[in-house]
C-alpha cells in the first residue's frame, strides 16, 4: 500500500512539473498585465529547442537553457504585438500558439524518433531521498523538478516581498499610476512577458528532456492551456500554483497506475480525459464557490498601456 502510494506520488509530481513551470511563468506575465495565450506554442518551441540543443551539444544544462530561452524569445513576439503595438492580446496569443505549433511541426520533422541527445534522469538527493514515502515522491525527481521547487517560493517572494514585485503588480493593476511614479510600465511588462516565456520554454524542455524524452509533434497535449487555467485557479499566487499542478499530475499518475496495475475499474479513455475535465471543474469551483471577495485577477490584465489614453 505504501509502495503504491509512493509510486503514484512520484509520478504525480513528475507529471505536474511542466504545468507548474508554465503556470509560474504565466503568473508573472499576467501579474504585470500581459495575457499571453501562447503558452502551448512556447512550450512546444521550448521542447523542440531543448532536444535540438541536446543533440547538438550533449550538455543537459545547455539543452534546458536553450529550451527556456526559445520560449522567452517567442514570448517577445507577443510582447511586441501586445505591448508596443497594443493589439488584441487574445488574438496575438492565439496566433503565437498557432505559430509555435506550425513552426515546430515544420522544423522538428527530422528530429522525430531520434534520441534526445541528453536525458535529465531522476537525481536522488542524498539523505532526503531516503525518507520513507516522501523521499520517493519528492526527492527522486529530475534536476528541473528541484528547480521548480525553488522557483515557486522565489516567484512568490519576488512578487510579494520585493520592490520589483510591487512594481510588477502595480503595472498589472493601475498602469497609469505606475507611469506617473516615473516607472516605465512597458519595460516591466516586456520583462515579465519574457520571464513568462522562459517558464513555458523550460516546461517544454522538461517534457522533451525528462518526462517523455525525445521530440514528438504536439507533445505538450494541451498542458499549456491547462497552465493558463491553473493561473486562475491559483488566483495569480505562485504558492497556490503548486496545488493546481499537483492535482493535474495526480490524475495523470492515476492513469498510469490503473494501467500498470491492470485494474479495469475505470475505462482508459475516461482516465485520459480526467486531467482536462479536472481543469474545467477547477475553474468552475473557483468561480462558483469561493465568494466574491477573492482576488479575481489583475485589474489591467490584457489592457495595453498608452499615455495617449
Amino acid at each position: 500500500m505504501m509502495e503504491d502510494l509512493a509510486f503514484i506520488g512520484q509520478i504525480a509530481v513528475k507529471s505536474s512539473i511542466a504545468v507548474l513551470l508554465a503556470t509560474l511563468g504565466e503568473i508573472v506575465a499576467e501579474r504585470s498585465g500581459v495575457l499571453n495565450l501562447g503558452v502551448e506554442g512556447m512550450m512546444l518551441v521550448g521542447a523542440l529547442c531543448g532536444v535540438a540543443a541536446g543533440v547538438a551539444t550533449g550538455n543537459p544544462v545547455i539543452a534546458a537553457a536553450a529550451g527556456a530561452l526559445a520560449g522567452g524569445l517567442l514570448a517577445l513576439v507577443h510582447g511586441f504585438f501586445a505591448i508596443t503595438l497594443r493589439v488584441n492580446q487574445v488574438l496575438s496569443g492565439l496566433a503565437l500558439t498557432i505559430l509555435g505549433m506550425g513552426m515546430t511541426s515544420f522544423v522538428g520533422r527530422p528530429l522525430i524518433g531520434t534520441p534526445p541527445g541528453v536525458r535529465l534522469r531522476a537525481l536522488p538527493i542524498p539523505g532526503l531521498a531516503d525518507i520513507p514515502v516522501i523521499g520517493d515522491i519528492l526527492f527522486r525527481q529530475s534536476a528541473l523538478a528541484y528547480l521548480a521547487y525553488i522557483l515557486v517560493p522565489l516567484c512568490w517572494f519576488v512578487l510579494f516581498r520585493t520592490g520589483t514585485g510591487l512594481k510588477i503588480r502595480a503595472a498589472g493593476e493601475d498602469a497609469a499610476a505606475v507611469d506617473a511614479a516615473g516607472i516605465d510600465v512597458n519595460r516591466i511588462r516586456y520583462g515579465c512577458t519574457f520571464v513568462g516565456g522562459l517558464g513555458a520554454g523550460l516546461a517544454g524542455a522538461y517534457l522533451s528532456l525528462s518526462y517523455t524524452p525525445g521530440w514528438k509533434e504536439s507533445m505538450t497535449g494541451g498542458q499549456g492551456w491547462v497552465a493558463i487555467a491553473m493561473v486562475i485557479f491559483a488566483t495569480w499566487n505562485p504558492l497556490r500554483a503548486v496545488i493546481g499542478a499537483f492535482l493535474f499530475g495526480g490524475l495523470t499518475a492515476l492513469q498510469f497506475y490503473f494501467q500498470a496495475v491492470g485494474i479495469e475499474l475505470i475505462p482508459a479513455y475516461i482516465l485520459k480525459m480526467l486531467p482536462y475535465v479536472l481543469t474545467i471543474v477547477v475553474m468552475i469551483v473557483v468561480n462558483a464557490g469561493m465568494g466574491r471577495r477573492r482576488f479575481s485577477g489583475p485589474a489591467a490584465l490584457g489592457i495595453p498601456f498608452s499615455r495617449e489614453g
Partner: peptide, 9 residues
C-alpha cells in the same frame, strides 16, 4: 500553418 499564423500577425 506557419503562414496562417503569420497572416494573423
Amino acid at each position: 500553418m506557419v503562414l496562417e499564423a503569420v497572416l494573423l500577425f
